[in-house]
């Protein structure tokens, strides 16, 4: 990758997004305040989008969330704490893309309600297994 600034990354629009990212990232590092940037509502033509993606690059974490309601692709960029998210519906149509500035994007964290439900379910399964085990004795 060339480090020389190309035409697109010196573009005012991309510069503004990058400046915003830098501010938010510094804020995250010092105060822990998270932020999101909605790329869907930012008017960007394909070359600009490509330039932004090239600048941000790809880091060392990639994750896919797939569930009944759709799919989300997440990866960390070359800048720690800056994540790219792409949400798809159940027909794999792109709904929206966003940038999350956070230690971990919200969507990757397990939710307390989900965890409580999972614990109850696991407990119930375990009780059932134990019962089955006793029955086998």
């Amino acid at each position: 990758m060339s480090l020389a600034p190309d035409k697109e990354t010196t573009d005012g629009f991309i510069q503004a997004i990058l400046a915003e990212l830098a501010t938010r990232l510094a804020e995250l590092a010092s105060t822990g305040i998270e932020a999101q940037i909605d790329l869907r509502s930012l008017p960007m033509d394909p070359p600009k989008r490509a330039a932004l993606d090239a600048k941000l690059g790809k880091g060392d974490v990639t994750a896919t969330i797939a569930d009944r309601a759709g799919r989300t692709e997440v990866f960390e960029t070359r800048y720690a704490g800056v994540w790219r998210l792409a949400h798809y519906d159940m027909h794999d149509t792109l709904l929206m893309e966003e940038i999350a500035i956070a230690p971990v994007p919200d969507i990757l964290r397990a939710d307390p309600t989900d965890m409580a439900e999972a614990a109850a379910r696991l407990g119930a399964e375990l009780a059932l297994d134990t019962k089955k085990g006793h029955a086998n004795d």
């Binding site: 569930d67 989300t72 949400h87 929206m96 919200d106 969507i107 939710d111 989900d114």
Partner: peptide, 10 residues
Amino acid sequence: SRRALLRYAA
């Protein structure tokens, strides 16, 4: 999961 809800909310 709550993740699907977060996607929807986003």
